[in-house]
């Protein structure tokens, strides 16, 4: 009987990799690592209190070219978005994620025209809600899902992101733990987007240029 490419490849790899260790022992080592997911080294830089994390995130995101604006409450968000668009000379139109926290904010008090759903690429400005952020590197964590279409993160020229200050963690690892709690061990949303600054390219003579395929502006409204 002919074996499948899968079996042939795996058999060849097994023979070369095992190095005389019994299969039972190898299986045990793999099962243990997958179950325990040891953390390894988490830089001390991010292991600080809430305000420290917020300050570090703000600094690191800024270094990566994002703009971070802190506001007190979700009630202040619509006004802050409208002000930013006006100052940037952009139309008062936003394609917005269906995140309940955004849906509850008083956007009707502004002159903004809001549309929900996925972007077809014609929108200038998108507004999504982050799952959280990583202080260590100034990175936003944005999950895909029915409320947060992925196209909002990549297609509009200007990506605005609402972020609750309570969700700023020191490092990447707490988010893996959160995802396990929420989706179950080993399960994930379609995409976890770790975003550090606006898109860029250095492919022409190593000159750094902002605004490659993704957004040219990344603006974080840090709430609380």
């Amino acid at each position: 009987m002919a074996t499948s490419p899968r079996e042939t490849m795996l058999a060849r790899i097994r023979q070369a990799a095992a190095g005389g260790v019994s299969q039972a022992e190898r299986r045990k080592a793999v099962a243990a690592r997958l179950a325990e997911h040891p953390k390894g080294i988490v830089p001390a830089r991010g292991q600080i209190d809430r305000e420290g994390r917020v300050a570090l995130f703000t600094e690191m995101a800024g270094r990566a070219g994002a703009r971070v604006q802190r506001i007190a409450t979700y009630d202040a968000l619509p006004g802050a978005v409208a002000d930013w668009l006006r100052a940037a000379n952009l139309p008062a139109e936003v394609i917005m994620s269906g995140d309940p926290r955004l849906a509850a904010a008083p956007f009707e008090t502004t002159a903004l025209s809001i549309r929900n759903g996925a972007s077809d690429g014609s929108d200038l400005t998108g507004l999504s809600h982050a799952e959280g952020a990583i202080a260590e590197s100034g990175t936003l964590v944005v999950l895909s899902g029915p409320d947060n279409p992925n196209s909002l993160n990549y297609l509009p020229d200007n990506h605005l992101v609402a972020l609750s200050a309570d969700d700023v963690e020191g490092a990447m690892e707490p988010f893996w733990q959160r995802l396990r709690m929420h989706y179950g061990e080993g399960a994930m949303p379609r995409s976890v987007n770790l975003i550090t600054g606006p898109s860029r390219s250095a492919d022409i003579e190593q000159t750094l240029l902002i605004g490659a395929h993704g957004p040219r502006e990344l603006v974080v409204f840090l709430i609380g």
Partner: peptide
């Protein structure tokens, strides 16, 4: 860079 701009973890 500390992190590249986009690190995307995709599943299914």
């Amino acid at each position: 860079q500390d992190m590249s701009v986009y690190t995307t973890v995709v599943t299914g």
